Amino acid sequence: MCDVNVFVVKNGVEEKVLENVDLIEEVPDGIRLVNIFGEERTLKAKMVLYNNSEKRMLFQSF
């Protein structure tokens, strides 16, 4: 599988937001994340880093 764990940096601190993310899409409210279990989160953030080998994606909160 190629699902990733998503983290957000807020005030200099990384926080895990959602694990096993399978879908990432831009929506009017921000970035929509959906994991393999159907859990959803929407972030008001921009992407900073995607590391496939670590299965890790990092966003910076607005």
Rank of each mutant, 00 (worst) to 15 (best):
M1K: 09
M1R: 06
M1Y: 13
C2Y: 12
D3S: 13
D3G: 02
V4E: 00
V4S: 02
N5M: 01
V6T: 05
V6A: 07
F7H: 12
F7C: 02
F7G: 02
F7I: 04
F7E: 12
V8F: 05
V8S: 05
V9H: 08
V9Y: 13
V9W: 06
K10Y: 14
K10L: 10
K10S: 15
K10A: 11
N11T: 06
N11W: 13
G12N: 09
V13G: 01
V13R: 12
E15Y: 14
E15S: 12
E15Q: 15
E15G: 05
K16S: 06
K16R: 15
V17T: 08
L18W: 03
L18A: 03
E19M: 06
E19N: 10
N20W: 03
N20M: 04
N20R: 13
N20V: 00
V21Y: 01
V21R: 03
D22Y: 10
D22K: 13
D22C: 08
D22F: 10
L23D: 11
L23A: 05
L23N: 10
L23C: 05
L23I: 11
I24N: 02
I24E: 14
I24H: 08
I24W: 10
E25H: 01
E25L: 02
E25N: 04
E25Y: 02
E26K: 13
E26P: 00
E26A: 10
V27G: 08
P28A: 06
D29E: 15
D29P: 03
D29V: 03
D29H: 05
G30H: 09
G30Q: 04
G30Y: 10
G30A: 05
G30P: 06
G30W: 11
G30E: 10
I31A: 07
I31Y: 08
R32S: 14
R32H: 14
L33T: 07
L33M: 08
N35E: 09
N35V: 03
N35W: 10
G38F: 13
E39I: 04
E39H: 12
E40H: 07
E40T: 14
E40M: 11
R41P: 01
R41K: 15
R41Y: 08
R41I: 08
T42P: 06
T42I: 15
L43I: 08
L43E: 12
K44R: 13
K44V: 11
A45R: 04
A45P: 04
K46Y: 15
M47S: 07
V48I: 11
L49M: 13
L49V: 10
L49P: 00
L49R: 14
L49S: 12
Y50W: 14
Y50A: 07
N51F: 01
N51E: 15
N52L: 09
N52F: 10
N52K: 11
S53Y: 15
S53G: 05
S53M: 10
S53P: 03
S53L: 13
E54C: 01
E54N: 07
E54I: 01
K55T: 00
K55L: 05
K55A: 07
R56T: 00
R56F: 02
R56V: 00
M57K: 07
M57A: 15
L58D: 03
L58A: 07
F59S: 00
F59C: 02
F59N: 02
Q60T: 04
S61P: 00
F62N: 06
F62V: 04
